[in-house]
Structure formats: structure tokens, C-alpha cells
Amino acid sequence: MNQTERRETTPPFTLLMAVYGGNSLREVERSVQSSTIEQTLPPSQIVIVRDGAVQEPVQRYLDTLQSTMSVWFTAEHPDEPVPEVTIVPLDENRGLAHALNVGLQHCQYDIVARADSDDVSLPNRFATLIPLFVRRSNAAHTDEQSRRPVDVMGSAIREFSDDEDDPGQIRMLPAEGADLERYARLQSPVHHPSVVFRKSTVLDAGGYPEHSGRFEDYMLWERLMLAHARFLNVPQPLVLYRTSEAAYERRGGSEMFRDELKLQWRFLRDGFTTPWQFLRNVFVRAAYRVIPTSLRKRAYRSMTSRHNTEIATSPQPPLPPQHGRHSAAPREDARATSTSSTMPASSATSEPHAPPLQ
């Protein structure tokens, strides 16, 4: 199926992002470019919520983004419609959950893809996820569990520090079903910057929980799982997740410790976790927040490696096919080689968005 045929058979979808004062122009521009013009299946609409005041170069970039998008697509995708750009300005920064809830109100389409303003989407991200999301939602299967439509789909992510061509470790997650349900009681079941979801499902669950500290996405997934939404993780890294030494410091501290305890109490109160799981999570996850940063970094890498090994040796669904002219680019081949040299050949899956313990 060529690009035009795939576009004709694939429903339109919205890309949802939020930017804030801490984002640099370099980060925002790279994230938008990788999620639009570089995609073999670009979004039909781009919603960017400006969460409070931003740096002046970022504001100028947002002000001219629609015309920039027109120039890009005329040059690179002349047969594709130019995505509609919707910039939603908020006067003050009230947190990511609030920004995304406001942004959802401006999304024209029920299929919404998330992207963070400092991460990079690989060229086949939407060409892989969107058709599979639609197919797994519409297909009839023999067992009752599989017959339910997919509501949230994520992918593996691959870390990088500053150089996209020098990627770090892959974060892995169980694909679906009972394994993912068990995993979700300790850690986030999907990577937030990789997800595609149904807007209607998220809104029916009340949207992103606000005033939830730094765990707005994990608490949303809890709401959806309690409402019997269906989750699926694609065993292929489709997003480069920006990380740094400072990230390990942000995962700890007294504020994160308090947010962690509130999260675990919420899960227990809602019946998402059992009393035993609550105690386990407080011991494992809360302790992770208060240990020194150097130990936190080692613990993170050790736990990620262990989870990757466990998940890679379990049965995995086949990799979705890759499509499009970008998929064979030398840059992507180099990344694929890097991936295969650090992981078993049969695996290419993921682990959670913020800490290994989100």
C-alpha cells in the first residue's frame, strides 16, 4: 500500500502537545518537525497548548507555525493536505494535566496522538501505530477479551541525551493482557510520549487528573483500567525520549516522595492495588525517591535491564511492518543496528515514561 492509499484508508488524527517556559526553541522545533513533516503518515491536525509564558523565540515559532507547515508540506509532501495548526494560549502555567485537558477540547478527531515537546518521534511512528490501532479496534476475534476495541496504544521508547544518533537503552513493557495488568500495579503500563488514544474514552474517564503531582498520566491509566479500557504496547521503539543527568535528580526529593505516597494511597483507595501491593509499592517506589541520586541512577539502570530481560524472553506479538521512504534512511539503519547490538534479536519493546518507577 503506497502513502496515498494508506492516507485514504486511515482515519484522520490529531497530534496533541504542550509547551512551557522551560522548553527551548531547539527542542520544540525538533519535536514538531519529527512528528509532522518527517512522518510517513502525518497528522491531520496539530494542537499545541502554550502552558503559560514561553521564551520569545518559541512564541515567534508558534506564531508562524501554520505558514511554516504549509511551506514544509508543499516541498516535502505535495500530495498530502497541510495539517491544521491550532495554538491554544494559556495565560498561566497550571501544569501538564490542565494543559492537556484544555487541548483535548480543541482536538477535532477522536484518535489523538501525544508527543512531548522535547522528545523525537521516529519517521514510522504514526504509520505503524495508527493503522494498527484502527485494525485492532475493528477486527473481530474469537475470544471475548480480544474482541474489545483498543483504547490506548503505546510503543517502546529509546533514550537519548543530546545526539539522536547515539541512542541509549530501550525501555520495555509487556504487550497486553494479564501481564500488562500485573505490571500496571507497580509501574505505568504505557509510555506517555508514545501513546495514541481515543479522545472519547479519555473524556469519559474525566480527562487527565489535575492536582496529581507529576503522575497525571499514570493516574489516567489507572482510571481507564478500572473502567475496563483495553491497552496495547507495540514491540518496537518509535520515540526517542530525551533524558539527562538532571532527570535522575528530578525523580527524587521530598516533593516526589509526597506525590508518590499520594499516588499509592489513591490506588489503594480506588481498589486498583491490594493492601499487599500498596505496602510493596511504598517500600520499592517511595524508597527510590529518597535514596541518593547516584544510587537512584544505578537502581534505575539495573531495574530497567532486568525488566527488559524478563519481557524480551516472554512471547511477543510480531513487529508491525515498516512503511515509507524514511524507513530505509541510513540514519534509521544506524539506530536499528544500535538496538540489535544491545538487545535480544527477538525483542524491541518498552518501559514507562518518567522514571522506571512511574
Results as ranks from 00 to 15, higher is better:
residue 44 S to H: 00
residue 146 S to L: 13
residue 91 D to G: 10
residue 111 I to C: 08
residue 177 G to S: 07
residue 274 T to A: 12
residue 287 A to R: 12
residue 133 F to C: 09
residue 355 P to A: 15
residue 103 G to W: 01
residue 201 T to H: 01
residue 239 V to G: 08
residue 173 L to M: 13
residue 221 W to R: 11
residue 268 L to W: 02
residue 22 G to P: 08
residue 162 D to I: 01
residue 280 R to I: 10
residue 141 H to D: 11
residue 183 Y to V: 01
residue 281 N to S: 12
residue 86 T to M: 11
residue 66 Q to C: 05
residue 188 S to Q: 12
residue 46 I to D: 08
residue 242 R to H: 09
residue 179 D to C: 03
residue 39 Q to V: 09
residue 45 Q to Y: 02
residue 319 L to E: 15
residue 340 S to H: 07
residue 131 P to H: 06
residue 278 F to E: 08
residue 110 D to S: 07
residue 94 R to M: 09
residue 224 L to G: 09
residue 344 P to Y: 02
residue 36 T to I: 13
residue 294 S to M: 08
residue 269 R to H: 03
residue 300 Y to W: 03
residue 83 P to E: 11
residue 26 R to K: 15
residue 263 L to A: 07
residue 231 F to G: 05
residue 180 L to C: 02
residue 333 D to K: 13
residue 265 W to F: 01
residue 136 R to N: 11
residue 92 E to G: 04
residue 52 G to A: 04
residue 265 W to H: 12
residue 70 S to W: 00
residue 274 T to L: 04
residue 307 H to L: 11
residue 18 A to C: 15
residue 25 L to G: 11
residue 337 T to F: 06
residue 229 A to E: 08
residue 151 D to G: 05
residue 38 E to K: 10
residue 217 D to T: 04
residue 83 P to D: 12
residue 215 F to A: 12
residue 299 A to C: 11
residue 115 A to H: 08
residue 109 Y to T: 15
residue 80 E to G: 00
residue 15 L to G: 10
residue 193 P to W: 04
residue 36 T to W: 13
residue 219 M to F: 00
residue 129 L to K: 14
residue 225 M to W: 10
residue 132 L to H: 07
residue 176 E to M: 08
residue 306 R to T: 15
residue 257 F to R: 00
residue 90 L to D: 14
residue 196 V to Y: 02
residue 7 R to P: 08
residue 83 P to W: 07
residue 335 R to S: 02
residue 304 T to M: 09
residue 151 D to L: 06
residue 147 R to F: 03
residue 168 G to N: 00
residue 2 N to W: 09
residue 317 P to I: 15
residue 110 D to R: 07
residue 266 R to S: 07
residue 5 E to T: 03
residue 141 H to A: 05
residue 308 N to A: 12
residue 286 A to W: 05
residue 351 E to C: 10
residue 233 N to R: 08
residue 127 A to Q: 11
residue 189 P to M: 02
residue 73 F to M: 04
residue 30 R to D: 13
residue 336 A to Y: 03
residue 231 F to Y: 06
residue 326 H to D: 15
residue 315 P to I: 14
residue 350 S to V: 05
residue 205 A to S: 14
residue 215 F to H: 05
residue 11 P to K: 05
